[in-house]
Simulated scan of single mutants.
Amino acid sequence: MNRQIQPKWHTVAEVAAMLGYGLSKTKMLVASGRIRSIKDGGNRRILPEWVDAYVNQRVEEAA
């Protein structure tokens, strides 16, 4: 049985890759609060639903 482990949250770099954005742009979106995140130790973490919320917001803004 081969099970794939799905991460519970993502790094800023992973979110940048998911969205097709550069790391600098993604860091700016996180720092400004456009993409919600939490600080976990020395790292920022982003829940998958927070990425979805950002994408949905961008779609609504474009409509």
Rank of each mutant, 00 (worst) to 15 (best):
E60N: 13
A53Y: 07
A62T: 08
S37R: 00
L47R: 09
Y21I: 02
R36T: 12
E49T: 08
I5N: 10
Y54H: 01
M18E: 08
K39E: 07
G33R: 12
T11R: 06
I38G: 04
A16I: 01
E49V: 07
I35A: 02
V12C: 02
K8W: 09
A31M: 14
A17Y: 08
L23S: 11
V55M: 05
S24I: 11
I38M: 14
T26N: 05
W9F: 13
V15F: 04
P7Y: 07
R44F: 13
A16C: 04
D40H: 13
S24G: 14
R3H: 10
V15C: 04
R45W: 08
S32R: 14
R44V: 03
G33E: 11
A63R: 13
A53L: 06
T11I: 03
A31I: 03
K27V: 02
S37L: 04
A17H: 10
M1F: 08
Y54A: 00
V12G: 00
G33D: 06
M18H: 10
T11D: 09
K27P: 00
K27N: 13
E14C: 08
V51M: 01
K25V: 13
N2S: 03
A62M: 13
L29N: 04
A62K: 10
A63N: 11
A31R: 15
R44P: 02
N43D: 12
I38A: 09
G22P: 06
N2E: 05
V12I: 02
L19A: 01
P7R: 05
G22K: 11
V12N: 01
I5K: 11
V12E: 01
I35L: 06
L23F: 11
T26G: 05
G20A: 10
G41M: 04
Q57E: 15
D40G: 06
T26E: 06
